[in-house]
């Protein structure tokens, strides 16, 4: 009883958190004029999606996906697979974090270069291109 209540509670909490974080970050990306705040919102959006991916492989009260005995019988294996978290989303997220690191560094460098050339980071004033 308590397990299922806690499970529901956590899942609902995480889902609402993700929704709110995605909403805030999309607002920041679209509506904020400052390039710095746009980049910060983008990193929040990346982390939201990463947590969503982790969340798919997650189970409440689970064990790490490490099999300690190789020659265990089929009962133990079944118990292991039903209680262990799915490691693949974590691997995907690790890759996505590394890629996000590269992209964010590049964006920050570009923002620095924009500031050097325009002396401002207000995206309303950086409008040499027509689109």
């Amino acid at each position: 009883m308590s397990t299922s209540f806690l499970e529901n509670f956590f899942i609902t909490l995480i889902l609402y958190n993700l929704l709110v974080a995605a909403g805030i970050s999309i607002y920041g990306v679209v509506a904020r004029p400052s390039i710095t705040k746009k980049i910060i919102s983008l990193t929040i959006l990346q982390d939201t999606f990463n947590i969503l991916a982790i969340f798919l492989g997650f189970k409440v009260f689970s064990i790490p996906p490490v099999l300690l005995e190789l020659d265990s019988d089929i009962e133990k294996l079944l118990a292991f697979t039903t209680s262990a978290v799915d490691p693949l989303p974590q691997a995907l997220v690790l890759t996505a974090i590394v890629i996000g690191l590269a992209v964010n560094l590049f964006l920050i460098f570009l923002a620095l270069q924009v500031f050097r050339l325009y002396r401002t980071l207000d995206s309303r004033k950086i409008k040499e291109l027509k689109g």
């Binding site: 980049i39 983008l42 959006l45 992209v103 590049f106 570009l110 040499e128 291109l129």
Partner: peptide
């Protein structure tokens, strides 16, 4: 100025697309 602004626009929206 043109190259940096174009690249920022491309990179920023490209990241969201990714």
């Amino acid at each position: 100025r043109e190259a940096v602004e174009a690249s920022f626009k491309y990179a920023f929206f490209g990241t969201i697309a990714g």
